[in-house]
Design a protein around this nucleic acid. Structure first.
Lengths: 124, 124
DNA sequence: CGGCATCCACATGGATACTG
DNA sequence: CAGTATCCATGTGGATGCCG
């Protein structure tokens, strides 16, 4: 319910409304899809947990990306008051709804870049 | 057959192989998904035809994007020798295989940004 | 643990003009 | 028709260091 922090603006290139460009604006960044994928897989995660799971990302870029994903209502940040305190990043329902998109991206990547020995795989 | 101009390098963020980042590198640019979508919809298209269908893109950016997509084996450029000459951009088989990804992006965009009156649509 | 501050390099995109 | 040539503004990502 308290999902989308603000209303989503309709991002689009030209004047006409374009669902693809909209989606691309949301997840068409280098790290966004991977981050969402990890959150789908592992569920709510801490910052450093995420940093470990997203191989190769720096603290700053992870931080920037999470900020962006929060602005867009994909990711939610929760502070757990314990000693020491913890932070949980999780997907909003909008974020969870991206699962089919992320999975199709994963599937495509697997089918077309795996199996280096397969002449038809795209990577030989 | 003569589809993939060169072998695909395995783009990935860290050291481990990651299908999502790979896919994101291919189509995770502002205009790439739309261009591929238009080629899926309209079939082989000329430059200005594409420029018209991709609302808001400039010549330079379309040109750059098409170059990039060709490098990655997604798009193919064919010169038709007529008077005057024409150029056809079309999808390679690898490009065509992206259809599920593009369609899931389109579907997500439609479901989550359309229907401003629907409280559950993401845009209220 | 969970970041932010800085600084910097390069990529991406846009406007305008011009060409074969 | 199908681009290319500039120039410029902004975006995106990376390295390093510091902080509560």
């Amino acid at each position: 319910m308290s999902d989308t922090p603000e209303r989503l603006e309709v991002w689009c290139a030209g004047e006409e409304w374009c669902p693809i460009t909209t989606t691309a604006t949301l997840i068409g960044k280098k790290w966004h899809p991977v981050i969402v994928h990890r959150l789908l897989e592992s569920g709510p995660s801490g910052f450093n947990e995420l940093k470990t799971n997203v191989d190769g990302i720096s603290s700053k870029v992870l931080s920037d990306s999470l900020d962006d994903l929060q602005e867009k209502g994909i990711v939610e940040r929760t502070v757990v008051n314990e000693q020491p305190f913890r932070v949980r990043y999780s997907l909003t329902s909008r974020g969870t709804s991206l699962e089919p998109v992320i999975l199709s991206m994963a599937e495509w990547g697997e089918q077309h870049l795996k199996a280096p020995e397969d002449p038809d795989s795209g990577v030989r």
